[in-house]
């Protein structure tokens, strides 16, 4: 099986700490269920040991900005 996280199309995925998450949710005034989702079995998460309910921080190389940080909630 190839390591998906090594592919150019795959941005960096990391698990978000609770504290940081609170800040983000406060800033946008949203619940964690409002975040976009990501499946627990998504290939880049294989190495990460994630659980359903965790939030993943994704750092994209943006086309319009320098870097774009987005969050996805782990489901199922």
């Amino acid at each position: 099986m190839v390591d998906a996280s090594q592919h150019n199309l795959v941005p960096e995925h990391t698990i978000v700490e609770e504290e940081e998450l609170e800040e983000v949710l406060d800033e946008y005034n949203i619940d964690r269920t409002d975040l976009p989702k990501i499946k627990r079995r998504d290939p880049p998460l294989r190495e990460l040991d994630v659980e359903v309910g965790d939030v993943i921080r994704i750092e994209r190389d943006s086309r319009t900005a320098d870097r774009a940080v987005v969050y996805r909630l782990v489901i199922e």
């Binding site: 998906a4 199309l9 290939p43």
Partner: peptide
């Protein structure tokens, strides 16, 4: 792409 590399790569590919 989605099966092998995940949603983020799929999003990138759609764009």
């Amino acid at each position: 792409i989605y099966r092998q590399l995940g949603v983020e790569a799929a999003r990138e590919t759609i764009i």
